[in-house]
Design a protein around this nucleic acid. Sequence first.
DNA 1: TTGCTCCTCACGTCACGTGAGGTGGC
DNA 2: TTGCTCCTCACGTCACGTGAGGTGGC
Lengths: 278, 278
Amino acid sequence: MSSSRGDLLTVGQLARLAGLTTKALRHYDRIGLFRPALVEEESGYRWYTTEQVPVARLIGRLRSIDLPLQTIGECLAADENAIKQVLVAHQRRMESRQSRIRGQLHELGHLINDGLDWKMTTPTAASAPADEKALAISLYNGVWEYLGKENRTPADDDTMVHMAHASRYHWGNVGAPVNLARGEWLCSRVYAVLGRAESARYHAQRELDICRENGIGDWDVAVAYEALARSAAVAGNAELARGYTEQALLAAEDIVDPEDRAVVLDDLETIPGQPRFW
Amino acid sequence: MSSSRGDLLTVGQLARLAGLTTKALRHYDRIGLFRPALVEEESGYRWYTTEQVPVARLIGRLRSIDLPLQTIGECLAADENAIKQVLVAHQRRMESRQSRIRGQLHELGHLINDGLDWKMTTPTAASAPADEKALAISLYNGVWEYLGKENRTPADDDTMVHMAHASRYHWGNVGAPVNLARGEWLCSRVYAVLGRAESARYHAQRELDICRENGIGDWDVAVAYEALARSAAVAGNAELARGYTEQALLAAEDIVDPEDRAVVLDDLETIPGQPRFW
DNA sequence: TTGCTCCTCACGTCACGTGAGGTGGC
DNA sequence: TTGCTCCTCACGTCACGTGAGGTGGC
């Protein structure tokens, strides 16, 4: 009698149709994200309509890209445009996550190759550096930690910008030209991530200039073009971005160390918009 | 009187020196991962020796690559070789994670471009496909989900292999040559991830052959070389891998759609060992 | 009777972070 | 007295998964 209800579906049936688990569906009910059309008073059985199937599927699809349930709830009640904004914001989160994992895999590569020497000097951003060079390095790494952070507040963004400049500043006191170039590169990257195209372009160009003036080649020139391409992409100039990317690829061919080369090629793929959306 | 203890350090002091938080250090104490050298009976104050600083730093460094505390505990008590194994295993986990995020970002790109059409037919792996073509697609996507899974059991690995072949089989019934080629490619990728170089090579070659026989070019030829490169890398033949990678890069230049091209270049960078470790 | 689905708690996961509420020495 | 550090609970996080214990119809 309660086992069949016309064209209503039980949790299990909906779960199968939508590619979800019954546990998940009950959870969505509990938190009020997605409720059955009808709940049987006596038994507590949940009954869903067939029109609810696509909604359940949509939820599953959004979960498969790791969109939080909270956010999914907002999407279900929003219009096209608001949803797009949510998705773009989520994309940024996922890009941070990717950037973080990328860095971790590099670290892992080093650890596996070199073994973990018990007396590493690698300072974490929080620790007090012994001298100015260590400070510059520590700040440099600190910026990368911010870049890999998922929910940066505006204050975080500010800190990150200033930290990048601080690193470049201290390299200015104790570093070789190549360090200055990389400091500029870091600044450019930070501005690109924050969508400040003009500053990104400026520091990318500075990096390239420093390389030229000091006969620096190889890796640094390649990433200078990468930074230029990125800034162009951020500015919305796809054509220019494409051109710089080509130059970056060309320059990358001169990189001797295959590991370094891989880093650059890898990085080129993270330029937003350009390959994926235009 | 209890505020200073010769060269012993308080939690706060150690935290600063090691780049950790006091909360974390207390947590490590609680779970028995890393205990203070001395705990004051009356006040409960924790006191650490200076020799404990590098250990705390090591823990911080391993946490920064997301190694679980459980595993870190095992590392602290293990020798060089065992640690290396642990790190390599972790590397695999991180690569799965990376692969998963990569896929999610692609999905996101689609969702943002196309909007989320309310009546999507995209079936999740678990849902029942309507016809054999849908089945082949569903299996294909299912394999990618397995590839993005972090803790695959041996049974998972088996399922993944068979699923890849099943996808290829069903494409054999309902697909065009290009689908067969991609089915072969998927099989090759699965074998490569599982370290079965010879099978990976076999299916990569099959893919290339199918492309040649049917005048298929563009994307599929590029990824065929990518698969060959990957299988060579898995086999430990760095030189061969390098050669195939070059061919893949060359072939990638012919790919018209920049998005597709980006996918291939992106994928080339995930070939293990080759760029990062040799 | 066995199997299958459905139900509701309650607890676990992972690595801490966040207070609340209180102490002790400068 | 104010500030700073230290302490111990207890609870929250995120999206469910995992039982335990029980029901109801074929």
